[in-house]
């Protein structure tokens, strides 16, 4: 059984986390949600019941535990077939790549750096391209002046991949004026990019 701990989160974050977890778990699985905020307990329960997912509720002092079973209840499948089956199937293919450093894996930095190039080359050849590539922290070295991978990224950009870079990071490293490709972005935009696709590949 998968467990998510949403203690300390304010409404509606617990619901957002619950929806995300429900998408992740398989049909035969259950989900345990640990909440410490009564309003959210009510709202999450409301949401689950609206979607024909029966909830078992336990309370220990101020901590609530909700257990949802994704198995058994067929009405969830049939009732939501239209709304939930078609769209996610297509959505699941979409993905973004997050490059939060300028090398791949742990070990020799030189190798790690070269592997980034090999990965970008491989992405280029894939059937489904990422919607976006997001560059953060030292990952910004890949999109700023002096990067060996600019031509490769330019190619990906012309193929329709959006390149976005964390503005705070550029600022921190004093490279605000060195960005060579794509656009500058903020955390809200980056979060939205990651939350609205099927998959996030984190490097």
């Amino acid at each position: 059984m998968k467990t998510i701990d949403v203690k300390g989160m304010k409404c509606p974050m617990p619901l957002i986390e619950t929806k995300k977890a429900l998408k992740e778990i398989g049909k035969e699985e259950s989900l345990r949600i640990i909440i410490d905020n009564e309003t959210s307990v009510k709202n999450v329960t409301h949401y689950l019941e609206d979607n024909n997912l029966p909830v078992e509720k336990k309370q220990d002092g101020k901590i609530f535990e909700l257990i949802v079973n994704k198995t058994g209840d067929e009405s969830y499948e049939t009732c939501n077939a239209e709304a939930y089956c078609e769209v996610p199937a297509e959505k699941d293919k979409s993905f973004v790549v997050m490059l939060a450093k300028d090398y791949l894996g742990e070990g020799e930095h030189e190798l790690g750096h070269a592997l980034v190039g090999s990965m970008l080359n491989t992405i280029k050849a894939m059937e489904v391209l990422p919607e976006k590539i997001i560059f953060m922290n030292s990952g910004i070295n890949l999109v700023t002046k002096g990067s060996l991978f600019l031509p490769l990224l330019k190619e990906l950009e012309t193929m329709g991949v959006t390149i976005i870079t964390c503005g705070t990071c550029l600022d921190y490293y004093g490279k605000m004026d060195d960005l060579e490709i794509g656009r500058i972005s903020n955390m809200a935009d980056i979060m939205e990019s990651m939350l609205t696709v099927g998959k996030v590949i984190n490097i």
Binding site: C11, P12, L15, I16, K19, K20, K42, N43, Y47, L195
Partner: peptide, 29 residues
Amino acid sequence: ELGCIPGAAFRNKEFTEGHCHFEQNIDYN
């Protein structure tokens, strides 16, 4: 779709329940 549904929407749901009818195949969102 993300689940960003404020509590007030659920409260409005309780308040309208029994007086308002949703077609069966209407999308939850």
